[in-house]
């Protein structure tokens, strides 16, 4: 599949993960979120931007457990749990937040 913004095409795999991480921008994130029926708030962006930084530093998308722990460490315990992250991304933070952040599907994601 592919996403399109103002005539520009962004290739994605059959599950909607974009294939070129370098082509990502915030407008594309909004569009992918819309496709996932998620309205991006400041809290969503916090997670998405965190994932972008994580990928930049480690070159992988983190497993859910690792993401939860790292979010808790950075933004506080009230955010470092599945209840909070699933309230933002109901189909799973790894699946949806990574997709919106333009990252590949996390290794070991089930």
């Amino acid at each position: 599949m592919a996403y399109e913004i103002n005539g520009e095409t962004f290739d994605a795999d059959e599950e909607g993960y974009i294939t070129d991480i370098g082509s990502w921008n915030e407008g594309l994130a909004d569009l992918i979120a819309l496709d996932e029926k998620i309205e991006m708030t400041e809290e969503h962006w916090e997670v998405v931007n965190f994932l972008r930084e994580y990928y930049d530093e480690y070159q992988i998308a983190p497993a859910v457990r690792v993401l939860t722990k790292a979010i808790g460490k950075k933004f506080g315990k009230e955010k470092g749990n599945n209840k909070y992250l699933y309230s933002l991304f109901p189909y799973g933070p790894a699946k949806q937040a990574c997709k919106i952040a333009g990252l590949p599907k996390p290794t070991g994601c089930i």
Partner: peptide, 8 residues
């Protein structure tokens, strides 16, 4: 760079 993620 990914080896440094192992600690996490």
């Amino acid at each position: 760079k990914t080896y440094r993620a192992l600690e996490g």
